[in-house]
Each structure stands twice: as C-alpha cells, then as structure tokens.
Design a protein around this nucleic acid. Structure first.
Lengths: 63, 63
DNA sequence: ACATAATGTCAAGTATAATTTACAATTTAT
DNA sequence: ATAAATTGTAAATTATACTTGACATTATGT
C-alpha cells in the first residue's frame, strides 16, 4: 500500500526524496521505500518526516 | 521518555500489559518497553495499539 | 538530442526492534 | 500475612528496519 499522502505532502513542499531524507537523517532509499509502501518505518522516523513536512502523524500515517 | 498517554489509555480500558500485547499480537515485554520509552516501535505496531485502545496516533504518539 | 536531476530497485551488510525464557519486585485481593 | 496477578528487567536469539553502493529508468531543462 503506497503512501500517497506522504508523496503529495513532499511534493507540496517541493522537496526531492533526497532532500527529505537529509532533513530526516536517513537515506534516500528509506524515503523511497516508505512512499512505495515496502516497509514499516519506526515511529520516530515517522515523527521526523511529519515535522519536516509540517504535518501530524494522523495526517500522513493514519488511514 | 516514558509514554504516559499510552499507559493511561490502557488503564482507561482496564487492560493489563499482557492483554494489550495479546490484542496487538506482540509480547508483553514489547508493550512494557514502549510504555517505559526504551525503544522505537514500528508505525504498524503503533497503529495496532491505537486501534486496541480506540485512540489515534496523534493522541498516543505525538508530543 | 543531450545533459542532469530525480526516482525505482537490488544485493549485502549493520543496527536495532521484538521474541523467548526466566526471575525479582511490586501491586491487589483474600 | 499470604497468594496471585501484574509489572520491571535482563540475557540470548531472531526478524527486520535501515544503510551503503551501484546501476537502470524516468522526468526536466537547455
């Protein structure tokens, strides 16, 4: 299940996967895999992503 | 940083750590460690915990 | 058409979440 | 006071998130 909310929130900030990865302190592949829905990130990483994109957990990771 | 929101949400449902663990399909120690704040659970586990306690991610895992 | 940035994906390694087993400490009820 | 349930914690193992490096593909701009 792809995470399109994340993808579009990133687009709304005009950030590349690499730029978002840098803001969160993870690799580009990790961001890519999360958007693609391959795996199951940690809550701390989710929180960092949310902060980088000015969103909350419910907005990006709740169904 | 202990997760007191989780602890009190569990208490509000009158569930033991073991019962919540069973509802989420994880071990009691995992629930204990999350409440204690030792580590960094996966988002999917957080979502399962939220559903078991009728809460959202923001309510239990957002600061 | 060409160059460059952005994305998709894979394999091998490292870090750490989560498990099991076990026991001690604390709480709750009888 | 005693027993039973709940919680805290620890060591060893397994599962998996995440990294690094590399290459192919798709978009964006000149």
């Amino acid at each position: 299940m792809k995470n399109l909310k994340l993808k579009s929130a990133r687009a709304a900030k005009d950030l590349s996967q690499q730029q978002l990865a840098d803001l969160c302190g993870v690799s580009r592949q990790t961001i890519n895999a999360i958007e693609k829905g391959d795996y199951n990130p940690s809550i701390n990483l989710c929180i960092q992503i949310c902060k980088a994109l000015d969103k909350t957990l419910d907005e990006l990771f709740w169904e």
